[in-house]
């Protein structure tokens, strides 16, 4: 990657890491007591309270991974940390989405859900993981860049 890309990556993942830490901390607090909902962001973990502390740990770690990758970002061992951070977010966010899909298909009284019920399953609020998901995808660009360089 060139210098500009490295600079951008550093700033970008520093911010994303900080946000990840904040979200993780919010979930950790929520799992101990009151969670907060802010607009369409819901960190109370109401959808799946059992595993909330685990998700908090994963988010916190992902945040740390991002932050620790910032220094000397272009070096592959550092970049790898950011990649792993993103992979962890993909796992938790993917499962949050999968959970919605799984509960959206069967209906309450009927075999299959009605169209309204189906769509309603995907309505906000969303958990912090789902917010981080699109932003974590930026890493794909860097992975492809690195792959290109390896050839």
């Amino acid at each position: 990657m060139n210098e500009l890309e490295e600079k951008f990556g550093q700033i970008y993942f520093a911010v994303l890491g900080a946000v990840g830490l904040a979200f993780g901390a919010a979930e950790l607090i929520a799992s101990a007591g009151e969670g907060f909902t802010w607009g369409i962001l819901d960190s109370s973990g109401a959808a799946d309270p059992t595993f909330l502390p685990w998700r908090a740990i994963i988010l916190l770690s992902a945040g740390f991974f991002y932050l620790s990758s910032v220094k000397d970002f272009a070096e592959i061992h550092q970049l790898a940390k950011a990649v792993l951070g993103s992979i962890m977010i993909w796992i938790v966010a993917g499962m949050a989405i999968w959970s919605r899909i799984a509960s959206s298909i069967p209906g309450e009284e009927t075999w299959f859900n009605s169209l309204e019920g189906f769509l309603a399953s995907y309505a906000p609020p969303y958990c912090p993981e789902m917010f981080l998901l699109p932003f974590s995808l930026v890493i794909v660009y860097y992975i492809l860049k690195e792959k290109e360089a390896e050839r």
Binding site: I57, F64, I87, M95, W98, A102, P106, W111
Partner: peptide, 26 residues
């Protein structure tokens, strides 16, 4: 941390696929 994430993914998928979707759903 990665192992925790992987196992969490494993278990979540398991619950939602087997429990929510198929057993309880249908």
């Amino acid at each position: 941390p990665v192992a925790i994430a992987v196992l969490y993914g494993f278990w979540s998928f398991f619950i939602d696929f087997a429990g929510t979707l198929f057993t309880d759903g249908f």
